[in-house]
Design a protein around this nucleic acid. Structure first.
Lengths: 219, 219
DNA sequence: ACCTGAACACCGTTCAAGT
DNA sequence: ACCTGAACACCGTTCAAGT
């Protein structure tokens, strides 16, 4: 039914990626699922990298950061971070997609990027620093959003977890005491609720501290 | 000459990956470069994932964090972070390798992990939080180490940079003012020196701030 | 404009066999 | 123990051709 359009292709690719991992997203596989010849996709995307960019674009499309308002930059930054994390979490393959794409070339990421830069400037950082902060924010958001692998794992992954656990616990405790002590939280992943609050707090606290130092030194 | 050993294979794989990107590291390519049949590699690594793990293992092998000493945890943490970044930087393909591998299964990463966990505990965080901090540290170290793409780029990448720059500058300035304003630092990447100090400061400041809050609330 | 068909140059991996 | 040979089931992509 639905026409074969770049958007439809990206949507289907994301479905496959979310369900079976990005490695399952293959031009040929995608084509057969769409009831079409592999070459048909090349009309809409000139190669696989463009398809990945399309996936990234659609991934982040739902996230439109509100325009800069008059609240303190700390609140705007927290909103941006939390929203970004929530959006990324709706797509399990988000991390792999973004890792393989140059986000700065993806149209729908420009809004996020622009907002992050603006907040950086408002916090008192210069241009170069704001660029670094933007990268750092996206990077951290991905890490936080991607963390709770142990929730959606279940099923056959449980045995893999078990194997890793045994591996970690059979390590020499005198040389790696903390590893064996924390083997369980290490392999099972963090409590998602904790990482959400703790992770965001961690990132924001760092930025706030450096912003404070800047103000302090310039006064 | 040199015997075909797991170590020799990993070393050669890293050389290829560093020089041409991880995509160029292929079982068949690796085999021919080693003057051997592709199947020979399967004796030493049961599959490609194991080879990647071997690469990661060798990557980090040179980095032996000194055992916990009596200095304040902030200094130990900075040492860990800086050392990690330096080690990662010696291998341009470090990021791609680590992204494809479960670091917790890589033997030589256990020392780094254990040290990070120890510092977290010493800073007053509980077990779960220390696990999160360890992940966060590695993640940030990779981001910082990987940032100066514009240094080693040169050559044919220069035109790609130019193309991206034009792309960014032709974006509507009224909706994305900060993007066009900072197009140059965005595409050229940060000044490496700045990211080294600024990035590490950012990460450490965040951890320190949260450690301080914890102490404050428990007193 | 949009899609098909056949072909090319690759992959990772298995399995049986050699020494 | 360590390696080879042949084969299988995949990839992404080009190029000419159809409608």
């Amino acid at each position: 039914m639905g026409k074969l359009t770049a958007r439809a292709i990206a949507v289907r690719a994301l479905e496959i990626g979310d369900a079976e991992g990005l490695d399952a997203v293959t031009i040929r596989r995608l084509a057969t699922e769409l009831g079409v010849t592999p070459m048909a996709l090349y009309w809409h995307f000139k190669n696989k990298d463009q398809l990945l960019a399309g996936m990234a674009d659609h991934l982040i499309a739902g996230f439109a950061p509100k325009p800069a308002d008059q609240r303190p930059w700390q609140e705007q930054l927290r909103d941006l971070m939390v929203g970004l994390i929530r959006t990324l979490r709706t797509h399990p393959c988000a991390r792999s997609v973004i890792e393989q794409v140059d986000v700065i070339t993806v149209p729908n990421f420009l809004a996020v990027w622009n907002q992050a830069l603006g907040v950086g400037r408002e916090a008192g950082f210069n241009g170069d620093e704001s660029c670094l902060i933007s990268r750092y924010l996206l990077n951290s958001a991905i890490a936080i959003a991607d963390a709770p692998a142990h929730h959606r794992a279940g099923r056959e992954a449980a045995s893999a977890v078990q194997a890793k656990l045994i591996g970690l616990q059979s390590v020499p405790p005198e040389t790696y005491p903390h590893i064996v002590e924390m083997a369980v939280p290490l392999v099972e992943g963090p409590d998602p609720a904790l990482y959400d609050t703790f992770g965001v707090d961690l990132v924001l606290a760092g930025i706030e501290a450096l912003a404070g130092r800047r103000l302090g030194s310039s006064s």
